[in-house]
């Protein structure tokens, strides 16, 4: 996979160091899911954790994979692929859990998302972000904050607040 760089050298892949200091650029964590690339705003990312034992929580929708113990806190894990109606993720040996700190209605909640592989940290200029297409994308358009490119491939930048609205997710 062309996103190996992140794992081979522990250095994140920046587009350009100079750009890093300029305003208008946002940093994204790029990960892959079902062979497509997605990005989440790096500001939301708390940490990346290995896929470990996930305890299934019964009577919940399939996109709620379960809960894990993260240093004493019990954190829910969302199966993003199931959330996008792409079927339940098969866990492979590169599978990771990206822990996001989601603040909604002034309340901070940690949520983990299950991804196939973490690719890179990317600095993207506002100008390089295209608006979400009305149709034709692999995920529902309201989940998309924008589209950009990484290594000549499209990256879907997710609007996490819309993708994981805690209140709606809680309604079974």
């Amino acid at each position: 996979m062309d996103a190996q760089a992140f794992h081979d050298s522990s250095m994140p892949t920046y587009l350009d160091d100079k750009q890093a200091n300029e305003e208008g650029a946002l940093q994204f964590l790029i990960f892959s899911l079902n062979d497509a690339l997605f990005g989440v705003n790096l500001m939301l990312v708390k940490e990346i954790s290995q896929y470990g034992i996930v305890t299934m929580v019964p009577l919940m929708p399939s996109y709620i994979k379960g809960v894990i113990n993260l240093r004493g806190s019990v954190i829910p894990i969302i199966d993003l692929s199931a959330r996008f109606n792409h079927g339940i993720t098969t866990v492979n040996k590169r599978s990771c859990i990206v822990i996001l700190d989601i603040t909604q209605e002034g309340e901070s909640n940690d949520i983990g998302i299950l991804v196939d592989d973490v690719a890179a940290v990317l600095k993207i200029e506002q100008t390089q972000i295209e608006p979400a297409p009305a149709f034709g994308a692999s995920v529902r358009s309201e989940f998309i904050a924008g589209i950009s490119k990484f290594n000549e491939r499209f990256v879907v930048l997710l609007d996490i607040a819309k993708t994981l609205p805690l209140d709606d997710l809680a309604d079974i």
């Binding site: 929580v57 919940m60 949520i111 805690l166 209140d167 997710l169 809680a170 309604d171 079974i172």
Partner: peptide
Amino acid sequence: IKPLGKLFKNLRGV
């Protein structure tokens, strides 16, 4: 007991 988060507020039986 560690309370389950907001996400599970409607969960019953647990």
